[in-house]
Design a protein around this nucleic acid. Structure first.
Lengths: 107, 107
DNA sequence: TACATCCATAACTTCCCAGTTATGGATCTT
DNA sequence: AAGATCCATAACTGGGAAGTTATGGATGTA
């Protein structure tokens, strides 16, 4: 069930897509048009990225008339935080084990 | 100087490569042969992944005779932790601003 | 109604990258 | 010295994904 980090890493690996997500985090809800304006790519490309972000649970969309508003869902980053924490944890655990060993050797 | 997260995300996006890094975190230093044995891919593929991990600063290598030992460098994950923290921070900051606004409207 | 705007999807092209096999240098073994 | 083992690099192939243009549905506006 470690599939969550995989999708998150894959989704955030693309710079354009990550930039869109960052903008949504910084500036809050945005329409597709607003995001397209300063993205450097075409509108369909932005829509596709937003689709990927949505599938990864990183954004929400809200329809209002003919425009769609997207907003970030930072909670979706939790599996990423967990993963990094786990990696650091393994490291620490092995350090502790080494520490123990050294203490036992010391006496 | 936000190039660090980019390289990290790109490097960790590949499942095989991330699995190698995870094993190094969990079990500590490993030779290329040991990593290849349970990786599901060929030895050259593993070498290539290790090269990518090394270039991203995620692993160290140590030569000993004809074998090369690789070990994880969890400190390299710091830019990732910073990035996620920053995203969550933006979110929180906007929540606080909203809170302020509501308070001012309330009185 | 007719036209314009906003967004999503389809169809296509291009390019990057993960994987392979082949090979060679370096080191250990006999 | 000869053979075997470990690893890295080169050369190549295939698949996927990010980008484009074209288009259409839905909604707002004249």
């Amino acid at each position: 069930m470690s599939a969550a980090p995989d999708l998150l890493f894959r989704t955030l690996a693309d710079p354009t897509r990550r930039a869109i997500f960052e903008r949504l985090c910084r500036e809050g809800e945005q329409t597709v048009g607003a995001l397209t304006a300063r993205s450097g790519v075409s509108q369909p490309a932005v829509s596709k990225h937003l689709g990927a972000l949505k599938q990864a649970g990183l954004v929400r969309d809200r329809h209002e008339g003919r425009q769609t508003h997207y907003s970030a869902r930072p909670g979706a980053l939790n599996p990423l935080i967990d993963w990094t924490g786990r990696m650091a944890g393994f490291w620490q655990k092995r350090l502790d084990a080494l520490d123990d060993l050294l203490k036992r050797m010391d006496q």
